[in-house]
């Protein structure tokens, strides 16, 4: 056979066979390359999926934590603002029923009861208002946000510059999320940032919405925050996720914080 292959005329066959093996070698190399790449890609995708799962878990945890905190707050409010006062009313009424009081004392007690009842009513109204602002349901998001800013301006020493143009047609649930996000922004700015001035811009049309919120508070170190996101911010993030939006923030220590939220596929320019 070898002799035959070495003949000049058979050389061509030999060359073809060598070429075939070279081709086979290259093809096998390509297949191996494909398999290793595939392995790597699938591993990366798995990592990504795990990361997303961990993120979801974190958000779920944050949601449960927030829920518990909220329950605690409501319980506290109910106890402080309503139960204790109703106790006083009950006691005073008992005193009245016993009837060993002068007319003056009776009148004073009744006045006292009336005062406390009025206060309790006011407290319960405020409590209900905090849980779900009726204005949001009756007059829509724009009015609710205006009222929210007014309330903060009236009660605290802050000024909120604002430009709210809400023309979207989001569902009531989504509007409540947006309202809560803004509420959280202001709360965080006052509680953690000790800010005195804020700027809120809401621009929207149809399915798009842009929210921009700035304050002059203490700010935070972004890199530190990456590792240890606060509950308030987690809460905002999970609401933005529900709204299918994007949350972005920039902050520097002592130079305030700026948050931007974009929902829908609107133009980026809306924040300018």
């Amino acid at each position: 056979m070898e002799k035959e292959l070495l003949q000049e005329d058979s050389q061509i066959i030999l060359i073809i066979i060598i070429a075939i093996f070279v081709l086979l070698f290259m093809a096998v190399a390509l297949v191996l390359f494909f398999f290793f790449s595939r392995k790597k890609i699938i591993a990366t995708e798995l990592d990504k999926a795990n990361l997303a799962l961990a993120h979801q878990k974190k958000i779920l945890q944050a949601t449960i934590e927030t829920q518990e905190q909220e329950r605690e707050r409501i319980a506290q409010d109910l106890h402080d603002a309503i139960s204790s006062k109703l106790n006083v009313v009950s006691l005073s009424t008992n005193v009245l029923i016993d009837g060993n009081l002068t007319d003056k004392e009776q009148e004073d007690t009744l006045q006292h009861i009336l005062n406390i009842t009025t206060l309790t009513l006011e407290s319960s109204r405020r409590l209900a208002h905090n849980l779900l602002p009726p204005i949001l349901d009756k007059f829509g998001l724009e009015a609710a946000l205006e009222e929210l800013c007014d309330e903060f301006e009236n009660s605290k020493k802050v000024t909120i510059q604002r430009s709210i143009k809400y023309l979207s047609t989001f569902t009531k649930t989504k509007e409540l999320h947006i309202f809560r996000i803004v509420q959280e922004f202001i709360n965080n700015a006052i509680r953690h940032g000790e800010a005195t001035q804020m700027r809120l811009i809401v621009v929207s049309e149809e399915d798009n919405l842009c929210i921009s919120f700035e304050d002059n508070g203490k700010g935070f170190d972004e890199e530190v925050l990456e590792d240890k996101v606060g509950l308030g911010l987690k809460n905002i993030q999970s609401r933005v996720d529900i709204l299918d939006g994007e949350l972005d923030y920039t902050s520097k220590i002592n130079k305030g914080t700026k948050f931007t939220i974009k929902i829908g596929n609107g133009e980026d320019e809306c924040w300018n």
């Binding site: 056979m1 035959e4 058979s10 073809i16």
Partner: peptide, 21 residues
């Protein structure tokens, strides 16, 4: 490559045995 060179079978100079390889 093998099929494309299939017509070599008609080349009388190449021994059939080699082609069979």
């Amino acid at each position: 490559l093998i099929f494309a060179s299939g017509n070599l079978v008609f080349d009388v100079k190449i021994p059939t045995k080699t082609y069979f390889l």
